[in-house]
Design a protein around this nucleic acid. Structure first.
Length: 434
RNA sequence: GGAGAGGUGGCAGAGCGGUCGAAUGCGGCGGUCUCGAAAACCGUUUCGGGCUUUAGAGUCCGACGGGGGUUCGAAUCCCCCCCUCUCCGCCA
């Protein structure tokens, strides 16, 4: 199993093993809701095997230590060690070694299976798959375009903001040159988003976008979504599909002071996605591309606060869309479409006049303790050390938001009225002719 | 990329292959003293896991960057990897 990260110290920080032992039926039901509970029985069987082996191994190790100390004490006093005593200690150790190997192997197999289990969804999350998201609310009025709505490609190419053909020549499909006025719009958008999230207590962060495997395993993208991630050829590094990854890893292996929670960060970064399995979907324009920029909110909270934080993040996402004058709706994503790490997810879907439908522009997930366990981000609770909760949400996915701005604020002559809030951040009042 | 130095508890910093989870100092926490505080003094202060347990706890195993090895016994010796620092080279 190449490249699977093994966790330190023999700890198993994944889906709470104790919960699995105590209430396997509950976990089985939760996993079944998400499609597959198959691995659970294997996990339980391996766990039982591990614990049996561990008891034996530890007992023998204790005996080995006792023998070694005895020999050490004798030698220190300058006495002779009785014949055969060292041999006996060696023999015990050799016998133990075989069991230690079996234990290590069983634990490794158990952990590989555990690594593949998704988070347990919130009860309130809707059942079903991709098409079963539940509409929560619809906000804003869909603009009317009696003369027909152009799509973002037509609009942007009209004023020299986009060059897709040359990008294809340079890098292949699903890439774009963003140019001229669109660059200024993007920079204003990012600047505006950073201002909003800063005022909401999120510390802006420009994170590394190349990360180690451990960060991707820790955030739950590996092993489940490995095919979505770009790997580098000569280094063991991966290009992140979202700054959620390096932001989550910011507190990997740390014990956070509860008084410091919630910790809120906003990542500003380019994002890279292979879009494997999306062949033929959304091939036009910059809706689904391999590279885009994003401002991403990320929170570390206590378990008690995470649900409220989730709604808070959703509220910020909505406020931004409202400021930008983009009609949208909020959907509650069904369990089958959550992704491995989320327990609950809301998407904001912007109205895209060029497509005549609502499309996802932002998304916020409560990952509860799933990522925190994998990353060992904890806090003290009395004598206990408990995993924190992590949440993430898009402040602005630049490409898709640009589409929504262009298409919703277009005028018949091909120009685009720039939302007021972006003008304060350097964007022109109008893009294109007139 | 080349040469060298080093990675020990929240921090600083000891540690001859033998009882070291680890001296000492600082910080933190609790206490004595005080009207209160400071100072002083006393105590306490890592993390993961197994088993037992009604609680609280008890007990054992593992962890001195990570992994492997030598040994009756490894923080101490050997190998590989990662990271940090210094110098040289290269570079936005």
């Amino acid at each position: 199993m190449p490249g699977l990260v093994t966790f330190r110290g023999g700890g198993t920080p994944l889906l709470d093993l104790r919960l699995i032992r105590r209430d396997p039926d509950l976990v089985r039901a939760a996993l079944a809701r998400r499609g597959d509970a198959g691995a659970l029985d294997d996990v339980l069987a391996l766990d039982a095997e591990c614990r049996g082996l561990r008891a034996e191994v530890e007992e023998r190790r204790a005996e080995s230590t006792r023998m070694a100390k005895e020999i050490g004490a004798l030698k220190k006093q300058g006495q002779d060690v009785p014949a055969g005593q060292e041999d006996a200690a060696r023999a015990l150790r050799e016998r133990t070694a075989a069991d230690e190997d079996r234990l290590r192997d069983a634990e490794a197999r158990r952990d590989v299976l555990m690594l593949g289990l998704p988070n347990i969804a919130e009860d309130a999350a809707p059942d079903g798959g991709e098409d079963d998201a539940v509409e929560v609310r619809v906000v804003g009025e869909i603009p009317a375009f009696p003369e027909g709505a152009k799509d973002h490609v037509e609009i942007a190419e009209g004023f020299g903001g986009l060059d897709l053909e040359r990008a294809a020549r340079t890098s292949g499909s699903r890439f774009a040159y963003l140019m001229g006025p669109l660059v200024r719009l993007q920079m204003a958008l990012v600047s505006y988003a950073v201002e909003v999230v800063s005022s909401e207590g999120f510390t802006p962060v420009i994170p590394p976008v190349l990360v180690r495997e451990e960060a991707l395993v820790g955030t739950g993208f590996f092993p489940a979504d490995r095919s979505a991630v770009y790997a580098t050829a000569d280094d063991d590094l991966f290009l992140v599909g979202t700054s959620e990854v390096p932001l989550a890893a910011l507190h990997q292996d740390e014990i956070l002071d509860e008084a410091d929670l919630p910790l809120r960060y906003a990542g500003i970064s380019s994002c890279f996605r292979r879009e494997a399995g999306a062949a033929g979907r959304d091939t036009r324009g910059i809706f689904r591309v391999h590279q885009f920029d994003k401002v991403e909110m990320f929170s570390f909270t206590t378990p008690e606060e995470s649900s409220a934080e989730h709604l808070r993040i959703l509220g910020i996402e909505e406020r931004i869309l409202q400021d930008l004058g983009i009609p949208y709706r909020v959907v509650d994503v069904a369990v089958g479409d959550l992704g491995a790490s989320a327990a609950r997810k809301f998407d904001c879907e912007a109205w895209m006049p060029g497509q005549g439908r609502y499309r996802e522009v932002t998304s916020c997930s409560n990952c509860t303790d799933y990522q925190a366990r994998r990353l060992r981000a904890r806090t003290k609770r009395g004598k206990e050390t408990i995993p924190v909760h992590t949440l993430n949400g898009t402040a602005v996915a630049v490409g898709r938001t640009l589409i929504a701005i262009l298409e919703n604020h277009q005028r018949p002559d091909g120009s685009v009225v720039v939302p007021e809030c972006l003008r304060a951040h350097g964007a022109p009042e109008v893009l294109g002719p007139s």
